Amino acid sequence: MDIQHLKYFVEVGKQKNFTKASQILHVSQPSISKMVKNLEDELKVKLLDRSEREIELTDAGVIVYEQALKVLQSVEDIYSYVDELVDVKRGNINMGLMPTIGVLLFPTILAGFKKQYPQIDISMTEGSAKQLEHRVKQGSIDLAITVRPVNSELFESIPLLSEELVVIVDSEHRLAGKESLCLSELKDESFILLTEDYVLHDVVEQACRESGFEPHVAYQSSLWDIIGEMVAAQLGISLIPRSMVSRFNNRKLQAISISEPQVAWDVVLIYRKNKYLSYAARELIEYIQSHQL
């Protein structure tokens, strides 16, 4: 058994298809099939159920797959440690952030980091908070700037920014002109929220429940601009971070503070606990911590 056997087997198990695995690995399908068969012969167990159109892991295959992932991660960590020692100032970072945070983070923070570390490359992935948390968990990105709540058992989280959520209403709404309100005053309103893929959706629903009512969600969208336009068209109200208000630039919209309870939008940087972080990733974390968003 060698690393190549495990690498090929893991890719087949992940793709559930020899053809797809061969395309990703750039290795012929017969070569992969032979490697997997050799692994099965060596372990004297059947690892793959090939009886259906889509390949499935057997019980033994699940065990080998899970252990192989750990072995391959350990090998990757060895290379990372060595690279760090050999070439300290170079590196690659796969980072995720929400589009809304991009407005706050660019250009100053990342531009400043790039100027200080010109040979560290950063690959950016955009997504919702839930999508980014999943990608950090799976290891496809090293770290992410997202929002609370996050899984504290799985992730380290570093607070970066906290701001209030405000209510936005159209200029002719019954609440227009108020400086502040209690969240309970919105119990009879129609809410326009981000979709359930976004943590903000859950934060708003939870805050409403804690204020004694279940929000009536009339519309959902994954686009902030659409939410703003729908509120301006008198289709409902919404709760958004205060920093987002100026983005709409719509005179028909008014923002109202929430006095009771105050609902926070907490921006955090997350990364996997007990997972090796490269020198480059650690430097970026330290740089972001030392600069105000």
Score class of each variant (00 low, 15 high):
178 K>N: 11
3 I>D: 00
266 D>F: 00
100 T>C: 09
205 E>R: 12
81 Y>W: 09
181 L>V: 11
145 I>E: 03
165 L>A: 00
5 H>V: 10
167 V>F: 02
163 E>Y: 02
95 M>V: 11
144 A>G: 00
256 I>E: 02
197 D>M: 09
216 H>Y: 09
159 P>E: 10
254 Q>Y: 05
189 E>T: 00
219 Y>L: 13
202 D>M: 08
136 V>I: 02
241 P>K: 04
293 L>V: 12
213 F>S: 03
104 L>Y: 08
177 G>C: 00
60 A>T: 06
207 A>G: 05
109 I>G: 10
186 L>S: 05
182 C>D: 13
273 K>I: 06
101 I>R: 03
145 I>D: 08
129 A>T: 01
200 L>Y: 01
138 Q>N: 13
72 L>T: 15
65 Y>H: 13
18 F>K: 15
178 K>Y: 09
54 E>M: 11
174 R>Y: 04
283 E>W: 08
235 L>I: 05
91 G>N: 13
159 P>N: 06
154 L>I: 06
69 L>T: 01
157 S>P: 01
73 Q>L: 12
173 H>I: 04
105 L>T: 15
18 F>N: 08
96 G>H: 02
76 E>A: 15
257 S>N: 15
148 R>F: 06
60 A>C: 03
239 L>V: 07
138 Q>M: 08
279 Y>R: 14
159 P>A: 01
33 S>Q: 14
112 G>E: 09
92 N>P: 02
135 R>T: 10
233 A>Q: 08
118 P>D: 12
261 P>N: 01
290 S>T: 08
84 E>T: 04
141 I>L: 08
89 K>W: 10
255 A>C: 02
24 I>H: 09
61 G>W: 01
138 Q>E: 13
20 K>V: 14
113 F>M: 14
19 T>E: 11
166 V>S: 00
131 Q>H: 08
4 Q>D: 13
72 L>W: 10
274 N>C: 06
15 Q>H: 12
151 N>P: 03
13 G>M: 05
79 Y>S: 12
291 H>P: 12
172 E>R: 13
129 A>E: 11
32 I>G: 10
164 E>N: 14
202 D>I: 04
6 L>W: 00
291 H>K: 15
